[in-house]
Design a protein around this nucleic acid. Structure first.
Lengths: 121, 121
DNA sequence: CTAACCGTATTATTCGTCATAGTACAGTTA
DNA sequence: TAACTGTACTATGACGAATAATACGGTTAG
């Protein structure tokens, strides 16, 4: 586990769990058909209630990231389609944000500079 | 008033009021020292509770967008400093979003295309 | 077989935020 | 003086998030 729950975050815990695991799947750290930690063990590791993990897992399955087998566990799904959707969502966000920046009087040069921000690090 | 409350929005009402007025101030539609609608009249216009408007106005003042004079009303502040902060926030968001896009495998060309999205429409 | 795991479901309770309702007070202004 | 203004306070209802405590059936290793 690379991430932790931030209890000062205003986002609900189950949502932090969802995005934490989403990141692990998208980055390839969790490969397809690999098992996720069990509901109970992850709850223990993160010091939160098992029901909260269950809620996160239910959403991960609903979002197409995982599949569950009662008695066996939860597993990573083939995520190509989901990744494509995520890409398109991100590009749409990018367009909206750039437009909003222009409304604030940000120049094209500033936008370009922000985008190339740490690509050279 | 150019905007309305969206009751299906998951964002709280008072937050929609805050960003609605923020937009009017930033766009220059509400000029510095110009009075905002009164707590009670705006509540009537939007069909919501005056306490909700009061909460929004309290936050607008705390964020540096307005100043209030008991007995007289709420007024638009000089907003140059705030606009500068907003610009920098937006540029930081832009950098983070572009980085996230690259992690998803989005190419530089796709990023550029998204940014120039509707600048030609 | 059985004990120890798995996901899943259900009910109850607690907590905080949002929104509403009602009332009140002091300052401003026509 | 009457009608505004912002501001403050308490009470209430609704809702989501999180916890707690069980319970059930499927899977699997010893």
């Amino acid at each position: 586990m690379l991430w932790r729950i931030d209890f000062r975050d205003k986002r609900p815990i189950y949502e932090q769990v969802v995005s934490g695991i989403e990141d692990e799947i998208i980055s390839g750290l969790l490969a397809p058909d690999e098992p996720l930690p069990s509901v109970r063990s992850l709850a223990t590791d993160l010091s939160i209630n098992p029901n909260t993990i269950q809620k996160a897992y239910r959403q991960l399955e609903a979002d197409g990231y995982t599949y569950s087998v009662p008695g066996r566990g939860s597993f990573v799904k083939d995520t190509e389609g989901v990744k494509e959707m995520k890409k398109e969502d991100t590009l749409r966000e990018l367009t909206a944000l750039a437009d909003r920046a222009r409304e604030l009087g940000v120049t094209e040069e500033e936008i370009q500079k922000a985008i190339k921000g740490d690509s050279h690090k």
